[in-house]
Design a protein around this nucleic acid. Structure first.
Lengths: 335, 335
DNA sequence: AAACAAAATGAAAACCCTTACAATTGTATT
DNA sequence: AATACAATTGTAAGGGTTTTCATTTTGTTT
């Protein structure tokens, strides 16, 4: 491996001068700079990031934490879209993303300890579950952080305007003439689930619509299966709804499967509206009317927030709420 | 930051002994080990990975390279599934995954140079395009590597049995009575595309079926749009096929859209079979008959292959071909 | 109690780099 | 020619760890 010492020897200058050239210091003669750069090129020198980070205490690495209840990791359509956008935005500034195993010589550590060990410059956390003590620990630490899909007063966060999304969803159904509107809710340990439920309840009240207790049914962790099961319960009601607002597209799709299986049609018999706008939604038949989460924007904002903290070298607390967009497609009809 | 020196001072032993305890050396008294471990606990000591890697030349990091022609990065359904599985398999041995930006102090570098700079222990490459000089450089280097979805005699590789997949697809259509079978092919710079085309041509010949020139139509980079366009061409033929074997599920879905749009039905008028088994395929209506790529297995095998090289500290060359599974659903019918 | 072997500990170098500051060289001013 | 000053270069310390090998301590045997 060729080091700055080799370059120094080859050019007759000292390692310090070589280092200065490599780091674009001003106080080095243009001729020597040229010579050194030539030698660098010729010998194929590459810096050593470990040595560099050791002394500068800067790793150019951002740790990523992925906590989702489905166990699908990077296959999670919302999370991977957000992270991809995030990655693109921090990449141009030279940051790498680290997906951590969390074990230091076979000992399992917390995310925080592990990231300290790795010396990351900051962390991006994508977490749906509300109460995860590892996430709490990260947010409360002095490590720059940005959390996606959660609210907090300890860390930068960015999330979609879930409450307003519920307003749009229900108001849209209302405008189509629906009055019996049910909600398949996300799990209550989930920030998004809670907020969407809250919005649903509020707007129903505001519109003067009644919410029978069994119009709110648990959709667990936003999976298709839970949507399917939830819809079966709604179908079994003596007074079933005419429209269903599902807290997630997968829930909505599961619900539509249940409706189809029961011999009914969407939107003819039941109108369905989802949340997320995953890829599937547009392709599904009928295509799903849904509230689009702006994943690119969320990733971008998260990147900005984190980079700000890293560049100013101090943790900050800031919230960005990203608006959602109602995507009107073909799963709802007027009555 | 607390270092081994602090532990040394606190316990009265030397840094060397502390280090030995931390690394589970045998030649240290149990009592001193206990004392040191207590101090470690009490002072909240954490090792410094940079210092460690600097001297041991081992980073416990695996670099990942994602090259796909759609520009969707981690949103790519096949790639993210494979990487997720890979991650799970290397995680248990303590390896982290690094998604690299490739810029060293604002200078853009090749993947190889960048990974040398970062001191990664190996790289996993997911690449569909055949001729990428950056990928070639990586494969030819002495850095342990495993490539997914490509063939090579310079690096470990793992890929699905594309040729056999084509056999299964066409034979299945043949067994349903189809004789006019067209192929929407993946781009020819693509290993998978080429192999699937090759298999298609071979099995058609073997079955004694003619392949009119215009039965093979270019599907570009496996996108839905290209599938849609390709199918339009097939529909415009004077003697259109009765069945279409698409080299990818997105192509197949695009094709089905074109069929539907032209006023025809699947499978009533046209049978369609895909390749991949992405999530969408099962949910689509009609659900898509396709060749399933075993993403978990591919990820697992890749992990094994790479870890082997890392553990034995020498690059090896080995190929694993993973069988595909025909998933019979409802997009094909017998005639 | 001596002699030796075995076990435990530590000193020091090494890994590769950055940076504060000292030393040197060059240039301008008187 | 002497001085002051700016520009350039180099010395050396330090970042936190591992590891070799010498040294010290402990234990065993006679």
């Amino acid at each position: 491996m060729v080091t700055i010492y080799h370059i120094a020897k080859a050019t007759g200058f000292s390692p310090a001068t070589v280092s200065k050239v490599l780091n674009n210091y001003e106080d080095v003669n243009l001729k020597t700079k040229k010579k050194i750069l030539e030698a660098v090129e010729e010998l194929g020198y590459l810096p050593n990031s470990h040595a560099r980070s050791l002394i500068t205490k800067k790793s150019w690495i951002i740790g990523v934490v992925f906590i989702e209840s489905l166990g699908i990791g990077m296959k999670h359509p919302f999370f991977n879209a957000v992270i991809e956008s995030f990655r693109q935005h921090v990449e141009v500034q030279g940051y790498d993303l680290l997906f951590a195993s969390r074990s230091i010589s076979n000992k399992q550590k917390s995310y925080l300890d592990y990231f300290k060990y790795r010396g990351v410059d900051g962390v991006v956390i994508v977490s749906s579950t509300y109460e995860d003590e590892q996430v709490q620990e990260l947010m409360n630490s002095r490590l720059p952080s940005v959390v996606i899909d959660l609210k907090s007063d300890k860390s930068c966060v960015v999330y979609s305007d879930n409450v307003h999304g519920s307003f749009e969803a229900v108001q849209y159904l209302h405008s189509l003439g629906h009055r019996k509107i049910a909600h398949i809710a996300g799990h209550s340990t989930t920030f998004a689930g809670k907020q969407r439920l809250k919005g649903y309840v509020e707007v129903m009240k505001k519109l003067g619509l009644s919410v029978p207790e069994d119009y709110i049914v648990d959709g667990e962790f936003f999976s298709r299966d839970s949507g399917y099961e939830a819809m079966k319960k709604l179908l079994a009601l003596r007074n079933p709804p005419s429209a269903i607002y599902a807290a997630g597209d997968n829930l909505a799709i599961g619900a539509m499967e249940a409706i189809r299986e029961a011999g009914f049609g969407v939107p003819d018999d039941y109108s369905v509206i989802g949340f997320d706008d995953i890829e599937l939604s547009e392709m599904f038949h009928p295509s799903l009317t849904t509230l689009r989460q702006q994943t690119e924007l969320i990733g971008e904002k998260s990147g900005e927030l984190l980079l700000n903290q890293i560049n100013t070298r101090q943790k900050s607390v800031e919230s960005v709420v990203v608006p959602v967009e109602l995507m009107i497609r073909s799963s709802c009809r007027s009555i």
